[in-house]
Nucleic acid binder design. Structure first.
Lengths: 239, 239
DNA sequence: CGTAGGTTTGAGGTTGGTCAACAGGTGTGG
DNA sequence: CCACACCTGTTGACCAACCTCAAACCTACG
């Protein structure tokens, strides 16, 4: 159930067996959330944090005129709302973009971890801080890059993150989101997203059909994206 | 030296005297950084985290074509790189946008805090998580709002954050940044920023001259911005 | 076999970018 | 004291990026 989480954390530092056991004890209560359903509602005050065991989820905000902005994407092994352990109130919603398998950790138990397992607590802190690093990268992409580059960057990032948790097959990965959803990620219109995508296809750097993205030319894609994975902190070192 | 930090944290939860004493012990080594100088360099591996005691600083990235994107602004009482305590390597630089007064905390000491002062450690964790909430709000503003609304939002946010640390005078605050810098925050050109600003002035919601921003009509400004301060977590509750 | 969701394309309008020029203020060297 | 460079803000002209509206097409599904 928590293999993906273990892979995520173990990519950044060594977890000892006792810490893994702690995580197994603290995380439970599996359930499934259907496509399009909220995993966590905006404005709620959850007493637990949710681990995404499988599927893809998004944090999102909707504004007065009805436009929806997606602020983060989550894959297997990500906590979708670990920050709520500190923030208490959700300032955004979390939505299942595919059928999702989830598990939860009680905030009471997480608090106990901070009191008895400082290193494990730091690892959880780390995962919220990596979320922040990803946010900054998205800000950079939105403000400073062309839309083509931004889309390429998103694909590079997802490929890299999915690879960490073993969810890629060769150079392709399952990607069940519609173009409309991706448009809400990039903050552009569906029409323009589609044209940007055609542009990447014309360059023969990616294929995207039947809910699968295949990377045809990684060096070129990464170059279009100016992708550098340092911000994902895939370095195993003491934290 | 750490009054602003205390104000920042105390706005979110009660700090007991011992915790304040701990912070005072851990944070020291004041220095000044001149306008335009780096406080922390991209790619570095700092052994300390820097508290901004006074002034304004920015986290930034510069891309291949030379454009600079600012991903966060910091004011007195903010740690500019507390996340580096967990991330180890800086994936961006931090720059002084005015003459800045800073102080530092050793990562060794912060680690000790996580081992001996779990509540204080959670408060530090909280402050990195609020950074993340601000990032998400910026993503929302960049992707979903008009530039006018985005600029209005930035002003609302800065006013609110400065108010927490006692740096506003009535409805105005000192704001020494040039329009070129603000353009790098919003991810738009200087020319367009200027025209957007004129637009807000024409509406008589703000004044901005001589390095001071004065808010003339807060309700209208907040409405243009769709500003809601929940994401800043200005609620005092147990964390 | 009709309906709904997703993708693709075109036309026309708006937003925002680049280039260029000018004004005001400041600091510096002659 | 003047001449000059430089930084910031402002404005206009023109062009590219991106949006909205609309329609056509495809597939899956009841």
């Amino acid at each position: 159930m928590i293999e993906s989480l273990i892979r995520n954390l173990s990519a950044r530092d060594i977890l000892d067996p006792d810490e893994i056991a702690q995580l197994q004890r603290v995380i439970g209560n599996e359930r499934y959330v259907g496509l399009g359903e909220d995993i966590v509602a905006e404005g709620s005050r959850p007493m637990t944090s949710t681990l995404l065991v499988d599927g893809i989820a998004a944090r999102y905000r909707v504004m007065e005129d009805g436009t929806r902005q997606i602020t983060a994407l989550h894959v297997a092994g990500d906590f979708v709302d670990l920050h709520a352990f500190m923030l208490k109130t959700m300032d955004h919603g979390v939505l299942a973009l595919s059928r999702c398998q989830t598990a939860i950790a009680d905030h009471k138990d997480l608090k106990l971890v901070t009191e008895t397992q400082p290193h494990l607590a730091r690892m959880l802190w780390l995962s919220t801080v990596i979320d922040g690093a990803i946010h900054r990268e998205w800000i950079t992409a939105m403000g400073g890059r062309s839309k083509k580059s931004h889309l390429a960057h998103l694909i590079c990032e997802l490929f890299t993150r999915l690879k960490v948790v073993g969810k890629v097959k060769g150079s392709s990965f399952h990607f069940p989101l519609s173009q409309a959803v991706v448009a809400d990620v990039l903050g552009i219109s569906l029409v323009h997203l589609n044209k940007t995508l055609q542009n990447l296809r014309r360059d023969e750097v990616i294929q995207w059909e039947d809910r699968v993205i295949a990377i045809q030319n990684w060096p070129e894609l990464a170059s279009i994206a100016e992708f550098d994975d340092v911000y994902l902190n895939l370095v195993n070192e003491p934290r």
